[in-house]
């Protein structure tokens, strides 16, 4: 099910667009025309996203989230609130989970970013991704990239062993569909494999 909901006509269009996305050009982001009365507001940075380094010219106002989504063509990371209140935008920066909506891309020159697109290894789901499928740890799937990035980071954090410890550690990721019990089950299954 590569392109659900798309008929032939839209599929052809999408295929063209998808090809473009694979090459990851800076989609539709022209140089901001800086006017004399406006402070210089774009900068060149290097981001290492999922192992691939890329030089980008970014608007200083662009969050890491918007840069990933709108400029780098990586829409797996989601915007649920844009104010650090839901966790849908969770990514790893230098190995730690953060809300990518509350940080500017220019603050991450040289940083290593991991997104949901970077977890699977050569098409093989990561243990956490596989556990989420196995335990039906999502419904609509929109908060899921953030949940999985949080759950994956959690494995490296000093989080206790009780269910309540895990629930607390996952409380920065809101799921309105209410997949929480299944998310808990998925994380527990991966943790038990780890230990």
């Amino acid at each position: 099910m590569d392109s659900p909901g798309w008929n032939r006509r839209s599929f052809l269009k999408a295929a063209a667009a998808a090809g473009a996305a694979a090459a990851m050009p800076d989609i539709a982001v022209p140089e901001p025309q800086v006017k004399p009365d406006v402070p210089a507001s774009s900068q060149s940075i290097r981001l290492k996203v999922n192992g691939t380094s890329r030089q980008l010219n970014v608007d200083t106002r662009a969050t890491l989230l918007d840069t990933l989504r709108e400029q780098m063509g990586m829409a797996g990371t989601k915007k649920g609130c844009d104010h650090g209140q839901c966790g849908a935008c969770t990514v790893h920066v230098n190995g730690r989970r953060i809300n990518s909506c509350l940080t500017f891309a220019v603050m991450h020159d040289g940083d290593e970013i991991t997104t949901i697109e970077g977890l699977a290894d050569a098409g093989q789901l990561s243990p956490m991704q596989a556990a989420f499928v196995e335990h039906d740890a999502f419904q609509c799937g929109y908060c899921t990239p953030g949940q999985i990035m949080s759950a994956t980071a959690l494995l490296r954090e000093p989080v206790g062993n009780t269910d309540d410890d895990l629930r607390e550690a996952m409380s920065g990721n809101i799921c309105r569909c209410g997949a929480y019990p299944n998310i808990l089950a998925a994380i527990k299954s991966v943790r038990s494999q780890h230990s």
């Binding site: 650090g84 966790g87 969770t90 989970r97 953060i98 920065g172």
Partner: peptide, 12 residues
Amino acid sequence: LLAGASAQLRNM
């Protein structure tokens, strides 16, 4: 500290 915000925000 652990009562505040979320794990992600505390990392920031």
